[in-house]
Simulated assay, not measured.
Amino acid sequence: MAKKQYWNSEAKNKRWIKEGRGQGTGSDYKPWLTVRDVPSEGRSHRVFGHITQRTHHLLSDIELATFFLLQWRQTTTDIREQFPLDRALTLQISQQLGIAHPNSHNVDQYMSSDFVVDADEKGRPRIVIQVKSKDDFSKPRTIEKLEIERSYWREKEVPFFLVTENQVPTTVFENINLLYNHIGSSFDLEELAVYFNLFLKQLYQQDNLRIVDLCIQLDSAYGHEPGESLYQMKRLLALRYFHFDISIPFIKLRCADLTAESIEAWEEGWRVSN
């Protein structure tokens, strides 16, 4: 949820800009902040996105939930997370508003928006989303920085939205907690590929069967310990080998609800990000 304090020196800012951070689109975009740069008070996530074909850096469960909902939105064409704002403009706006600009160690810091989202929608091809815990709104400084950000995007004539846990369906968080406890700190790509291909074949043959029932069948057919297939399926879902509507309760998912990612694209994206 809330992010811990961090700061950049001017030397680091220049290095990040030279690296191309905050630049590009689609698979070429590099976020201004990564999970390594900003320690999170909650869970941070690196997730391969099937729309952009790159790994996204998400700094909280709320960001992860928002990202999944954006990915499932049929009109979404690009998602750029941790997007830096033009510092010259945020400095100008903060002066106009009479609000102190974010500054640390006498260095004016770059502000960022959590998501810049492009969509195939007439009249609203781009929106910006800032994700906050509802508890953050009790902090006066948070409100001040949000006002700078809101004014920034108003100046750009881009719609700006705030998202808290109140806007995210409870089922989404339940699915995230259910799946993301199964990733682990390391995994065998060859083993995952074997299970991916096994499930892929079954999904097409039994499209109306619930995923949990399919896993029971596979445990019995292959002599696995009870629950082994379900464990592997949760790992594959968490690692985005398969995509599904995150707002559907896991227990209700059927084979037809899953869409397979290209395993070659996933593995390439994972190797690049690591």
Rank of each mutant, 00 (worst) to 15 (best):
Q217S: 13
W270E: 13
R73C: 08
F187K: 00
N103D: 01
Y204E: 14
Q71Y: 03
L85E: 06
S133I: 01
G227A: 14
S186M: 13
D135L: 14
D213G: 01
D61V: 11
D245S: 10
L239W: 04
L91T: 13
W72I: 00
W72D: 13
L258W: 05
Q23A: 10
R15Y: 03
G98F: 08
E63F: 04
A238K: 02
D108Y: 10
T52D: 15
S138K: 14
T142A: 09
D78T: 03
N181D: 15
K14Y: 02
A2N: 02
Y195C: 06
S60T: 12
R150M: 08
I263L: 07
E121P: 05
Q217K: 14
D86W: 05
S44M: 12
Y29M: 05
I176Y: 10
I93K: 03
L91F: 01
Y152C: 02
R126Y: 00
E165Y: 10
L97H: 05
T76G: 03
S220H: 13
V131L: 04
D61N: 14
Q232K: 15
C255P: 07
L146Y: 09
A265K: 14
V35N: 05
R46G: 12
S247C: 09
S60G: 15
R154Y: 03
Q202H: 12
R254S: 11
I51R: 13
